[in-house]
Simulated scan of single mutants.
Amino acid sequence: MNKRSFSSSKKALVLMLVIAAIIAGYFYFALSKPLFNFSPRESQKVTKGLVNEALAARFDYLSKNGNSSCSGAFRDSIASMPDNARLQGSCCSPMSMHRYNEQVEGLKKYQNIAKIPPDPYDIEAGLAKKLLAYYDEPLTPDEQKAYDYAMQNSSEKGPCCCKCWRWYVYGGLGKYLIKNYKFTGEQITDVWNLSDGCGGDSEHHHAS
């Protein structure tokens, strides 16, 4: 082999080694990254998206298929409903998706108290019966002060905008929370405002 041929072979070998190094480097850096990004932040985005879709679907159903009524006859009928029946939809105005989301999210702070309905537009009849029974519970003078505070300061100036079934159910809930969880008037006000089932947006209320 002459000197020129040896030099050409050497150059070819060096070129092959360089190409091999480039290819190896490419695969090293490419494979060092996950094929799919399952970082906590991305997972949270996916989860939040699914939750929002589920909430939107629930809103769509409740806003179109409600059975709730402000009539005294409807309130009286609750006692004879199966416990697993549902009291659904708004009483007065059409539901607002924006407000519905605010309410459901806001009520999550009370999720450890089983008798606070997590969705004011979808309440189990069995729970409504129990809360109705608390409405006539007597309060001590101090407990009554907390209840009266909520009556004066809640958006609807009471458990609901009118004395329908919600008034008595959430009035009973207020007394239950005051007696059993020592809720203050401010806390009852918050629960009632977040549980407003009249429909409409956040500024909606009938009482003056």
Rank of each mutant, 00 (worst) to 15 (best):
I78H: 04
S63E: 11
Y28W: 13
F38T: 12
K45M: 12
E53I: 12
K48G: 06
D83R: 04
S63L: 07
L62V: 03
T47L: 14
M81K: 12
R41E: 15
A56V: 04
S39Y: 03
S43A: 13
S32E: 08
N65W: 05
D83F: 09
L17F: 08
C91A: 10
I22Y: 01
A21Q: 03
A30V: 04
F59K: 02
L15F: 13
C92V: 12
N37C: 02
D76V: 02
F38H: 10
Q88W: 00
N65V: 01
D60L: 09
S80A: 15
L50C: 02
A24M: 08
A12H: 07
R75P: 03
G66C: 08
F29L: 12
I78K: 02
D83S: 10
I23T: 12
L87P: 00
V46K: 13
A73V: 13
P82H: 08
F59H: 05
R58M: 07
V14E: 12
V18R: 01
S71M: 08
M16L: 15
S32A: 14
D76I: 00
M16Q: 13
L87K: 02
R41M: 08
I19V: 15
R58W: 02
S63I: 06
R41Y: 09
G66W: 04
S63G: 04
S93P: 00
L13G: 04
N52V: 02
N67E: 07
S77V: 06
M97A: 14
M81H: 02
A85S: 14
N37H: 06
S93G: 01
G66I: 02
N67C: 09
Y26I: 11
G66P: 08
G66K: 01
C91F: 00
S80I: 05
Q88L: 08
F59V: 04
L50Q: 14
L15I: 08
M95P: 01
M16A: 15
P40N: 11
M16W: 06
A24V: 11
C91Q: 02
P34G: 11
K48E: 15
Q88D: 10
A21R: 00
